[in-house]
Simulated assay, not measured.
Amino acid sequence: IFMDQEYRLNVGASSFKADLLFFHRGLQALVAVELKKTKFHPRDLGQLEFYLEALDRDVKRSNENPSIGIILCPDADKVVVEYAMSRSMSPTMIAEYKRILIPQEQMQQQLREFCQFFLTEDKPKKK
């Protein structure tokens, strides 16, 4: 059982890197996650399916289930996703993510509260 960043896949004379690789105990399957910085494009699915095939042929053990793929992207046109997935036989999911930045003032306040909590807790109590 392993978890790694940029898991190297060697196929033929070429080397490829899956962004993240996990093993799901309950499903008994490898889970490859591709992180995209741009809107979903159908080529992303082709890339992930290639990685899943390489994992199933070269990494997966005989007692494990077929590998699962997840594509995380900041935006996806649902119709494009539907077309791209319509003939795919791979267990793959495409999901959008949202980047949420905490306002600087709020972060500073939380940091002050965190520091204050530990500063008051470490002091010996007077009787």
Rank of each mutant, 00 (worst) to 15 (best):
V33L: 07
I70K: 00
I1L: 09
R25H: 11
H24N: 12
A13T: 09
R112M: 07
D19T: 12
A84C: 01
P91Q: 10
A13I: 13
L21E: 12
F40N: 00
G46A: 10
T120S: 12
D44L: 02
F2S: 09
P124N: 04
F23P: 02
L45D: 05
S67T: 11
P103F: 05
R87A: 13
G12A: 05
R61V: 11
Q5G: 06
P74Y: 14
F117M: 08
D4T: 13
D44I: 04
E96Y: 00
Y51M: 13
L52G: 06
R99H: 10
S62M: 07
I70P: 01
L20V: 12
E53N: 07
K39C: 09
K125W: 15
G26E: 10
I68V: 15
Q28L: 03
F16Q: 04
Y83S: 13
S90C: 06
V33Y: 03
P74I: 15
D56V: 08
A76S: 14
D56N: 06
Q109N: 04
L9D: 02
G26I: 05
V33C: 07
D44S: 10
N65T: 12
S88A: 06
K36Q: 07
L119G: 05
F23E: 00
F22V: 06
R25I: 12
Q28K: 11
L21M: 14
V33A: 02
A95G: 10
G69H: 04
V11C: 01
A95Q: 03
K39L: 05
E96Q: 10
M89I: 14
I102L: 14
I100V: 14
A32F: 00
I102P: 00
N65M: 11
Q106Y: 08
V81M: 01
E96G: 01
D19K: 06
R99Y: 13
K17Q: 08
A18V: 15
R99L: 15
I1P: 10
V59A: 05
F2W: 03
T38L: 06
A95L: 14
D58M: 10
A13K: 00
L20Y: 14
V31W: 06
H24G: 04
A13W: 02
L48S: 01
K78Y: 02
G26C: 02
F23G: 00
N63I: 03
Q109T: 08
V31G: 05
I71C: 10
Q47C: 08
K60A: 15
S86W: 00
V33N: 01
P91I: 12
V80T: 09
S86G: 03
Q28G: 01
S62Y: 07
Q104A: 15
L45E: 05
V79C: 04
G12N: 07
K60C: 13
K37C: 01
R57P: 02
V33R: 00
M93W: 07
G26Q: 09
L21P: 03
I100Q: 02
G69S: 08
P124E: 09
E82A: 15
L35I: 14
D122W: 05
D58W: 13
D77L: 06
P66D: 08
R87G: 15
L35R: 01
K127Y: 10
K17G: 01
V33P: 01
M85Y: 00
P103D: 12
A84W: 02
